[in-house]
Design a protein around this nucleic acid. Structure first.
Length: 863
RNA sequence: GGGCUUGUGGUCUAGCUGGUCAUGACGUCGCCCUUACACGGCGAAGAUCGCCGGUUCGAAUCCGGCCAGGCCCA
């Protein structure tokens, strides 16, 4: 197919992008299990199917797609899977809202079905956005965690860790949301500021300050600081709890803050995390005053049956009446809330399932992974070192992976299914054999379900082909791309699980991306109404412009503020590129010409610069510095190619001279390479151009390994470009049109230059290259210093040296003495430490003179 | 309160393994429709590189302190 010469004047983003998206076939992106190529497996994040693929996702996926496309071109067998992390509270809440029900109004199975239906619809919407953004997803490796083929692996992983002793059940204080009626992990607790009341009251003669009077029934001790003189001698005494009349001990503990309240604190099971610490540390009793629904228990009689709020009011009133409430103060505090429903969490002691957290093993694994940016590792390290409890993995919800165990109704033995029978739902299915301990055949299925991170933390095992038993054949993955907000969850849990299940680290590298902030610099949120949807950007400027914003908006890893200007600039760059391409295509007509030898200076210079660009962009892509890659390409295309090269060589292209073939050939090579460099970042645009150029798809091509060395061309070409630019500026300064004829120009260069007449055509003048310097009257007007030489050579004397040089006569500046006097001391003049600033005056002929470093240009006025 | 991180012309941003005049984009102003491009070209104005101190002949760049923002956590 011969290249089209009739390219449309305007680049129709919408049309071109849609056309290629419907032309490309999914199979082109499939991972090839039989390939001999090196593997490159990406542990893509499985987003929560909210229905909106938001701009933060878009940034993350841009990075992933740049990498996937680049690695394919580098000859890797790339797997770019797509998962969906379906389970969890948000969907349950959404379903409850949508149908106006609570989870208990319908059967568990019916409720799950409603959640699944909602999720499937949401996935569909998000897939559509992803396709519109042009991601080269491997849809043959899509996984959906709520479907049996996935969650049976979650269950298998649970059983494997249970058998290995890494999972256990225990009654332990956990963070509990009484609205959602489920335990939640620390990772799901948000701490928000609020104003509360600090109540001072008399506690059997000791003044206590508390923010949680409703927990008085759960009081198990009073604690003071060991050095607090106000309470000396109190340790070991028993105090009687007001209203409830049970006795509690007084203990001393250094964690008590003597400056807070009265310096004496009542320990309740449990008001906050510190209570849990004291409770464990001092082996105190457990008094449960609040239940799972947030209702006061019998322990809190006479307040039993009240909500904790009602109880609080009632107790304060009763204290007031009893005359023991001394005073109340306002207090700013941070309270833990459920990340989903914002309800303040309670700490309840519950039978729960836990995963053992071995900090050392996790950090050891994490250190074997290459972190980009490096400092993100520190976040994981800090989180790991600050974990105090094991990971609570059980949830009292419905839409999640069931915990695959039963309890024997007779003896209480925990019974687990055969792996071959997975997945199971123990609330529906029954064990196939009687209880191995007592032989009974009545069982109670575990109703608790798994934390959704138990699903997603085996994503890497799933995509590398785990069958639930052995090491996955493709393990480990090469890269994990993810945001820094989920380092403590997804990254942390995945490293933990990979170590527990396979025994090593899950990936070779982790690439951490930043968050997308709104145009106002704040995190995007509905309440700030600063949300920008990807569809909005794509609708106006197209996927490639959004992708350029993703690549160039900020350095990889740092937070990036959304900015319409960047998107607009991106689309302008495409317009510019399109015009360059159109121009070039208009001149490439004969196939033979495009393959002609590149002989002329300007053309060879272009290839030298192209070669530099390839090296720089390749290095940037290897280091995931997409901003640097894009900047380098833009700089080359806009300045080197369009502004410098095309402007100079244009004239030659309009002629029939044989040297024109050299330019065509250089341009054909350049456009070919440029399209390949652009392919990962702007796949639609690159494809449109490349297809016009070659008739083939750029995405099936290899990454350019173009190397072209020609020192003479580099030197002379730089000179030519600089000189032509200077002369154009000269014309502009003289008020001349750029195509207005210029007088006779002589360029005096240090060596002979053959520009094939390019400068003359570009400037519409007679240009003659000459060697040496013209016979001009030179006037020294100053001096230029080279600090890079002076500094290291003279150190402290540098300043004095420069002053001494400035004091030299013009004649001496032109012919420098071998030494100068600095502070009475003769010091040698380092070679190249300065050059005189020279102005030229011409006595006879009337010419203008331009000087550019060691090049002198004379311009005659005859025109 | 802790950890990590950032602070560069009106706005956003590069540089941050120290070297004379600090990158680019958007915006502003002036000139130019030069056979690829006015979604363009040329040029101008605009920055004491958060503040203070230190190291150095020389610091946006290294060190310390402070101030401010962001993220994660207590």
């Amino acid at each position: 197919m011969s290249p089209s010469h009739q390219l449309p004047k305007n680049y129709d983003i919408e049309e071109v992008e849609r056309r290629w998206q419907s032309t490309w076939r999914d199979e082109e992106n499939y991972f090839d299990p039989d390939s001999q190529k090196p593997r490159f497996i990406i542990d893509t994040p499985p987003p929560y199917p909210t229905g909106n693929f938001h701009i933060g996702n878009a940034l993350n996926w841009c990075y992933i797609d740049f990498i996937a496309r680049y690695k394919r071109m580098r000859g890797y067998n790339v797997m770019f899977p797509q998962g969906w992390d379906c389970h969890g509270l948000p969907t349950e809440v959404k379903v409850e809202e949508t149908y106006g029900i609570t989870k208990n109004d319908v059967s568990r199975e019916k409720f799950r079905e409603m959640c699944r239906d909602l999720t499937i619809g949401n996935i569909e919407k998000m897939r559509a956005t992803m396709r519109r953004l042009g991601f080269s997803t491997d849809w043959s490796h899509e996984y959906i965690t709520m479907l049996p083929e996935y969650y049976k692996k979650t269950q298998a992983s649970f059983l494997k860790m249970l058998n290995a002793g890494d999972i256990y059940q225990s009654e332990h204080p956990v963070n509990f949301c009484t609205r959602c009626e489920t335990a939640i992990a620390f990772a799901e607790v948000n701490y928000v500021p609020r104003t509360t009341t600090l109540n001072y009251f008399d506690f059997d003669g000791v003044e206590i300050a508390t923010t949680r009077p409703e927990l008085l029934a759960a009081c198990v001790a009073v604690a003071v600081h060991p050095d607090d003189e106000r309470y000396h001698g109190l340790k070991g005494k028993k105090l009687v709890v007001p209203i409830f009349k049970h006795e509690v001990p007084v203990i001393e503990d250094a964690v008590v803050d003597p400056g807070f309240g009265s310096g004496a604190v009542m320990i309740c099971t449990f008001g906050d995390k510190t209570d849990v610490y004291w409770w464990k540390e001092h082996d105190l009793e457990l008094r449960k005053a609040i239940d799972r629904q947030g209702i006061m228990t019998a322990t809190a009689a006479p307040y039993a049956g009240m909500s904790s709020e009602e109880c609080r009011t009632a107790i304060l009133r009763d204290m007031q009446e009893a005359g023991i409430l001394k005073r109340q103060e306002e207090l700013e505090q941070r309270v833990g809330t459920c990340w989903r429903c914002k309800t303040p969490i309670e700490i309840l002691s519950e039978r729960q399932w836990f995963v053992k957290v071995h900090q050392d093993e996790i950090l050891e694994s994490a250190r074997k992974i290459s972190w980009t940016p490096e400092h993100m590792f520190t976040r994981l390290e800090n989180w790991a070192n600050s974990m105090e409890w094991d990971w609570c993995i059980s949830r009292q919800r419905i839409f999640a992976t069931p915990i695959p165990v039963w309890f024997c109704a007779a003896c209480g033995e925990t019974v687990i299914p055969d792996e071959a029978d997975l997945p199971i739902d123990p609330t529906v299915d029954k064990p196939k054999t009687p209880c191995p301990k007592c032989g009974a055949s009545e069982f109670i299925g575990e109703k608790d379900v798994l934390d959704t991170w138990m699903d997603s933390s085996i994503s890497v095992l799933h995509v590398t082909g785990w069958d639930g038993t052995n090491k996955p054949p493709l393990f480990p993955a090469q890269i994990r791309p993810q945001g820094h907000d989920i380092i403590r969850t997804w990254a942390f849990y995945t490293i933990l699980r990979a170590k527990a299940l396979v025994g090593s680290q899950p990936w070779d590298q982790i690439l951490v991306n930043g968050m997308v902030l709104g145009e106002d610099g704040f995190k995007m949120s509905k309440s700030r109404s600063n949300i920008i949807a990807p569809e909005e950007i794509v609708g106006q400027y197209g996927a490639d412009a959004l992708r350029q914003w993703g690549a160039g908006g900020a350095a990889t890893g740092s937070d990036i503020m959304f900015n319409w200007n960047d998107v607009i600039a991106a689309s302008r760059f495409q317009t510019k590129l399109w015009n360059i391409f159109r121009f070039v295509m208009g001149h490439l007509d004969a196939e033979t010409e495009n393959a002609a030898p590149v002989t002329e200076l300007t053309d060879r210079w272009l290839l030298v610069r192209l070669s530099d660009t390839v090296a720089e962009v390749t290095a940037a892509m290897e280091g995931y510095q997409f901003d640097r890659a894009l900047r380098t390409i833009r700089e080359f295309a806009w300045n080197t190619l369009a502004a410098d090269y095309v402007e100079i060589v244009k004239g030659r292209l309009y002629t029939d001279e044989r040297s024109r073939a050299s330019a065509c050939s250089a341009l054909a090579t350049t456009m070919d390479v440029l399209c390949r460099l652009l392919a990962p970042i702007i796949p639609h645009f690159a494809e449109e151009c490349y297809h016009n150029l070659t008739g083939r798809s750029v995405h099936g091509e290899t990454w350019p390994e173009f190397a072209y060395a020609d020192d003479t061309a580099r030197r002379h070409g730089d000179l030519l470009v600089k000189t032509v630019a200077e002369l154009r500026r000269y014309k502009h300064d003289k008020g001349m049109a750029l195509n207005a004829p210029l007088g006779h120009v002589t360029i005096y260069a240090p060596e002979p230059v053959d520009d094939a007449g390019d400068a003359g055509r570009a400037l519409a003048g007679e240009v003659q290259w000459s060697v040496g310097t013209p016979r001009l009257e030179e006037v020294v007007s100053g001096v230029n210093f080279n600090m890079a030489i002076i500094g290291p050579a003279l150190r402290k004397q540098a300043r004095g040296f420069m002053e001494a040089v400035e004091a030299l006569s013009p004649e001496q500046l032109k012919n420098p003495p071998s030494t100068v006097t600095v502070n009475g001391e003769e010091i040698p003049v380092p070679a190249g430490s300065f050059t005189p600033k020279v102005a030229y005056r011409v006595a006879g002929e009337e010419v203008d003179v331009l000087t550019l470093g060691d090049v002198v240009v004379t311009i005659g006025h005859s025109s």
